[in-house]
């Protein structure tokens, strides 16, 4: 079990690093804005009309916004790590509850996208890997190359034009009806499926050529038993090992796709906050996306350890 503990500790360290990096960027952003940060924060809390020098001083003292840079940064990071994320510079509302709402939307979208991508990409990848160079393989390869070249927003736009504007089957944007999730999820799923299918194809090819699969056949096992007992688990190991890449594609895609479909998730919030220079919101959204990425990777690690005894015992 030592291996699992070590992997999880590494992910924990990674989460800590994400918090420090995003917090430092937030701190630097706050100080890169024109004017006095204390004044801005006071304005967001009490409304622009209620701000005077005394209110700003109170904020400065409370948040420790004066003194040498390093202690100031450490106090700032301390607040980030304890999820004390402040108030939006635009709406004045506390950041955390708003973030949780966005997070729920992004999680829903990502889960839906994975639920569409896995049954689409994996079987096609396996079929392609069983007959490398065959018809399925070529079609899948072509599809994967094209899907990786088309920008996600263009893909989403095309789907929107076809399914919402021309056919009128699905709502083009928003989040009011349950069907609204389908188009953004499908846009994300196509990209993720292309990546996953490709990995599955290579994994199946590698296992198919492995000495242990040949030995399993020579042992006299039926083809079904060979695949079930020796093929599937071994082929799934590399697929799970690179899930992290697919999660990255998922979150990167979410930023663009949420903006296109006006889906109120973290990516949409991040883009808006950058646009409006709403530093606490930028910091909060980037933190939530970064920590989500680390968490997904930790889950992938746990799954990999479950499948691969070498990994669980720290020999890999």
């Amino acid at each position: 079990m030592m291996g699992v503990v070590r992997i999880l500790l590494a992910r924990l360290a990674q989460a800590g690093f994400v918090a420090v990096l995003v917090g430092t960027v937030g701190f630097a952003l706050m100080h890169s804005l024109p004017g006095d940060p204390a004044f801005r924060i006071a304005a967001e809390r009490y409304g622009p009309d209620m701000v005077d020098a005394a209110a700003a001083e109170a904020v400065r003292a409370e948040l420790g916004l004066d003194g040498p840079v390093l202690p100031r940064l450490l106090r700032w990071l301390g607040r980030v790590i304890t999820l004390n994320l402040g108030h939006s510079l635009v709406s004045g509302a506390p950041v955390l509850p708003e973030l949780l709402d966005h997070l729920a939307h992004t999680a829903m979208l990502a889960a839906m996208a994975l639920a569409l991508a896995l049954p689409l990409g994996l079987p096609l990848g396996v079929l392609a890997g069983l007959r490398p160079g065959g018809a399925v393989d070529r079609v899948v390869l072509l599809g994967a190359v094209l899907l990786r070249a088309v920008p996600p927003y263009a893909l989403g736009l095309a789907l929107m034009v076809v399914f919402a504007l021309h056919l009128g089957w699905l709502p083009p944007a928003g989040f009011e009806s349950p069907a609204a999730i389908l188009l953004p999820a499908l846009t994300l799923a196509l990209g993720v499926a292309a990546l996953g299918g490709r990995v599955a194809r290579d994994a199946v090819m590698a296992v198919e050529a492995s000495p242990f699969l040949r030995f399993a056949r020579w042992k006299g096992l039926s083809e079904a038993a060979v695949v079930r007992r020796h093929g599937l688990r071994n082929a799934s190991i590399p697929v799970v090992a690179v899930l992290g890449l697919q999660f990255a594609a998922l979150l990167e895609g979410a930023v663009v796709v949420e903006s296109l479909f006006s889906w109120p998730g973290l990516g949409h919030a991040l883009v808006h906050a950058i646009f409006a220079r709403d530093v606490p919101m930028v910091q909060g959204a980037a933190l939530a996306l970064g920590l989500g990425f680390v968490l997904l990777n930790a889950l992938a690690d746990a799954l990999a350890a479950l499948l691969d005894p070498r990994r669980a015992r720290g020999t890999l």
């Binding site: 000495p211 242990f212 030995f215 020579w218 042992k219 006299g220 007992r229 020796h230 005894p309």
Partner: peptide, 30 residues
């Protein structure tokens, strides 16, 4: 005939064993 009439001791046994299956199961499945 494989496994019933003829069987093979592979060149590098370490590579021919399933890396994710316990020793006893690899014998018992036969």
């Amino acid at each position: 005939l494989w496994g019933r009439t003829v069987s093979v001791l592979p060149q590098e046994p370490f590579l021919a064993l399933d890396p994710t299956m316990r020793a006893l199961s690899q014998v018992a499945e036969t």
